[in-house]
Write a protein that binds this DNA or RNA. Structure first.
Lengths: 351, 351
DNA sequence: TGCTATCTTGTGAACGTTCACATACCCGAA
DNA sequence: TTCGGGTATGTGAACGTTCACAAGATAGCA
């Protein structure tokens, strides 16, 4: 049965003795089909192993059952080429694929340049060839207003991940500000009164918001501004290590570090080792990101887990809803989580 | 220009004053088009920003410009759910997407169950809806003869990754046997004479071949069989740690460990720390896999890098060639690489 | 009973390509 | 000059769906 290739809607219609349109209505769960007919059609579909042809559906109707997820070409390729891997992409695939699969959709990945000249053209081309039912923009494309506007003009639903600004699109994000504040409070509870935030790059909206949250939380705790040092290390191991080496060798050094990504947190671990600082007794470390490798660092890193896969899953769900005619436009905030491992713990009094 | 949605082949034909078929010939680089006409058509395509509609091409011609990559559902989901990530999937995406993009194809991922009942049905359904031009089977699906046969019967080119057995399909692989031997030789050169292979699971063909390579290399070096211990730890941290704790606490313990994956190598690192064995002075460790996290272990792991992204890229390239009528069926062996980091080094004489 | 209003079903056209085939063109050889 | 044979171009049909609309069936109400 299922082995007979190319069962078409016409075959099903003939088997039941109805027209192709009736079968089509059953497939699309349309109204106005007598219950007894619907059952017979469904039985025949199962028996013949009929699966609708996606291309034909797209040609006839307009829906392609495809969701396109767009990533930053340069950064993604750089990560791969440097052997760093792309946990972000992996997580996107997880959330996106599982959600799409549930709904009978498919996820297609695409890299496009961030160059303002190239981005719209490349996206246009992908749209023209694939005609997806929805598009997911991730940072930094999610911050590109022009792209979102273009998509809307063409009537393609668009979801932006990692920004909370809009009302016209689907926006999915976590509260970066609150996450940073939570990290600070975690360290405060464990007795730290001087800490540093190792920031990534101000080009990333998330970085900025985390810095804000960091400062606000310290202020709310009644601590001086100097109690919170902010240093910019551009997400890189080497830059971070250099900065930290100086910072942690000083007499009034911070006793807690909050790093904007795992790589810089690893740098902190590395420097602590170099300076013979025990982690977490002499130095506590919290990372943002929580890639799989952090479980195996020595000691394993305490980290804030971004809900990456959940954000993508939500984005897909909304886009699919919209393509079905529901109104799912809006902003969705997803919860982060502080995962306590071994780089934080009760502060030991200095000897 | 490029902003005008929905430019069709007919628009281009009208603009140049030729028929749609002539434009089609130009797009598909077909023969029998006068050079002057070809140029005019190409100019018009660029000017109008025409991009062929994939669904229509599929309907008309038969090619979908889609490559389907199939992974083990259970194992992949487990990895994701456990927070372990799927470096394998990430690497697949890297190799597959870049290759497909170059050729104007698209890559679609799919998870299917390994259950022998479900696998063919799920694959059938995906084929029916997507009608891909080629399918990539990864372990353990690549070892499922039935799947490959079914695809051939339906005329869908199929590439199998990670096995070297066939001649009727595209098979892409690395020499696992030689890789294990290379790891052994690396340790021998550094003065080790007793070593252990921490094997994953015999269900994986690669595991078996590595054990063979391990044994053969020791034998060729003129060492006793007892010089090479093989222990099965099922790819898991805990199981490996338990085994190693016993093995490394004995008086005639091995001084070198070769682990079948990174997770078990991390376990070795963990146990060495527990037993106060210095790595690499007291214990050398080599891992198979080389996920991004190994760079940050303390010390960073020496590892054999599988050419995952390269294998997938090659598989895509072959499938695309085949869909274009070329004969690219055959076996392709890709080189692995031993990446020396800090868990191996010249053996220090015991005190 | 007859006549709408609604539910149910069917029919031709359309989507944008490529395929198979037909036709027109060109060049050289008989 | 005429014919053959490749080269260049165009035409109708087909792919498998859904859409828009038409038509038949059924129910509701006077």
């Amino acid at each position: 049965m299922a082995d007979k290739a190319k069962v078409t809607i016409e075959d099903v219609a003939r088997a039941v003795g109805v027209s192709r349109q009736t079968v089509s209505r059953v497939i699309n769960k349309g109204p106005n089909v007598k219950e007894s007919v619907r059952e017979k059609v469904e039985e025949a579909i199962a028996r013949l192993g009929y699966i609708p042809n996606l291309s034909a559906r797209r040609m006839g109707g307009g829906r392609s059952f495809l969701i396109l997820a767009v990533n930053d070409r340069q950064r993604t390729l750089e990560n791969w080429q440097a052997g760093r891997g792309n946990d972000w992409v992996d997580q996107m695939l997880y959330g996106g694929m599982t959600e799409c699969e549930k709904e009978g959709y498919h996820l297609v990945f695409e890299l496009i340049d961030t160059d303002p000249q190239l981005a719209p053209v490349q996206l246009s081309n992908s749209i023209a060839s694939l005609r997806p039912d929805g598009i997911i923009l991730t940072p930094p494309h999610s911050d590109n207003e022009e792209l979102a506007r273009m998509l809307t003009n063409r009537g393609i639903p668009c979801a932006r991940v990692g920004r909370s600004a809009g009302t016209d699109y689907v926006d999915v994000f976590m509260d970066e500000n609150a996450a940073a504040a939570e990290a600070v409070r975690h360290l405060l509870r464990q007795g730290h009164s001087k800490m540093a935030f190792l920031a990534g790059s101000p080009e990333y909206g998330s970085s900025q918001k985390r810095v804000e949250g960091f400062r606000k939380a310290l202020q709310e705790a009644g601590l001086e501004v100097e109690a919170g040092v902010v240093a910019k290390a551009n997400f890189q191991f080497d830059t971070a290590a250099e900065l930290l080496l100086e910072m942690l060798d000083a007499p009034d050094r911070p006793t807690g570090i909050i790093a904007d990504n795992d790589e810089m947190a690893f740098a902190a671990l590395h420097v602590a080792d170099k300076l013979s600082l025990n982690v977490p007794d002499d130095l506590a470390i919290i990372s943002f990101e929580d890639t799989p490798g952090v479980r195996f660092s020595v000691p394993p890193l305490t980290a804030i887990r971004q809900p990456t896969s959940e954000m993508i899953a939500r984005a897909c769900a909304c886009l699919i809803d919209i393509s079905r005619g529901k109104d799912a436009v809006g902003s969705y905030e997803l919860p982060f989580r502080l995962i306590e491992r071994a780089t934080t713990g009760p502060r030991q009094p200095a000897l």
